[in-house]
Design a protein around this nucleic acid. Sequence first.
DNA 1: CCCTGATCTAGTCATTGACAAGTTCGAGAC
DNA 2: GTCTCGAACTTGTCAATGACTAGATCAGGG
Lengths: 196, 196
Amino acid sequence: MERWRPRSLRKDVRTIGYHHGDLRRTVLDAAVDAIGESGLDGWSLRELARRAGVSHAAPAHHFGDKAGLLTALAAEGFDLLAATLKQAGPDFLEAGLAYVRFATEHPVHFGVMFQPKLYRADDDAVQQARERAGALLAQGARAVAGSAAGSENTARAGWSIAHGFASLWLAGALTEPAGSDPVDAARPVLRRLLER
Amino acid sequence: MERWRPRSLRKDVRTIGYHHGDLRRTVLDAAVDAIGESGLDGWSLRELARRAGVSHAAPAHHFGDKAGLLTALAAEGFDLLAATLKQAGPDFLEAGLAYVRFATEHPVHFGVMFQPKLYRADDDAVQQARERAGALLAQGARAVAGSAAGSENTARAGWSIAHGFASLWLAGALTEPAGSDPVDAARPVLRRLLER
DNA sequence: CCCTGATCTAGTCATTGACAAGTTCGAGAC
DNA sequence: GTCTCGAACTTGTCAATGACTAGATCAGGG
């Protein structure tokens, strides 16, 4: 976009000089935007660099390579999910709705998180964040399972129905309930696991 | 791999001459293999061409571009899903298990199908195949929903739990039930939607 | 025998991911 | 104040890729 200028002339504009200030954050946000617009294939590290106004190799310093950037995205996603679940509390229905809310509010993170082949799933930050979110998920699952026999399967059922609804919604497969709020649409569906 | 040879010398090996015979099928299969091995990013049209032993531009003739190939894959996937559901019959549990079986037996197709941004979802072949599969899905859903009020939501719950279980299994998120058969693992989970 | 359309080859160009080497800059040591 | 050092970023480069164009080959019908 903007032509390169000598350092001295650039200093005046914010802190955008040789040191960007928070390039990592900026590139990460640009990636979310780009992927959200064009899908998981419609972006490149170089494009993100252009959006951020830095050289084509700058992002590599922070993320190494493309997989590294997606790894960071996944880790951030699990952290966001953990935060959302924590806020929802231990009730199953609330946890499930929070899960759906997270997925629809952060569709790019959600999409990356559950495609381990896209990133380095064995990364430390990812694993730790995943465990934090997993613990909170288990908590919500226990609420519906109680301590009855087969509680494992009930927990899996809870996770599956929330995850499935969110995935199908994001895929545009549930167009019939119209463009209403996904969380409202999810409520009566998730309830089916409780009532009968 | 193999050097180019005049037509006369190549004819002896199968029907691999200027006309491959069934390049479309071959490339499609190669794509499934490649994506299965390296994920949705780890393949290229040129690599598929090399695997098939044709020039780097040959696949483009059949699919146009990368998205065209994935479009063909998605259409094939919906057809395969329809066939699997048809075989399972109208019972909800059987349909759900068939859904899971399809996803785990054709993980690449499944993964592509529900990421519309990767391909041309408005393609005719895709839409028709999607509708065929959708009709059979609705049939299985009706089995659990009956004609009660809120049957729409019950149907969505059925689809969600099957889709969610399949997705999580493929993502490696359900490692705890060990490497057992995914369909066996799904049975008690799907049942939770029926019993209580 | 030739014509036509489908299939595939060959050549090209801008773009990309990844890497190597050099430059700038901030912060702490002295 | 100056020196040093490491982190942040730039510049340059290369093989690989997607997409496009033009041309070659082949099969079948007239």
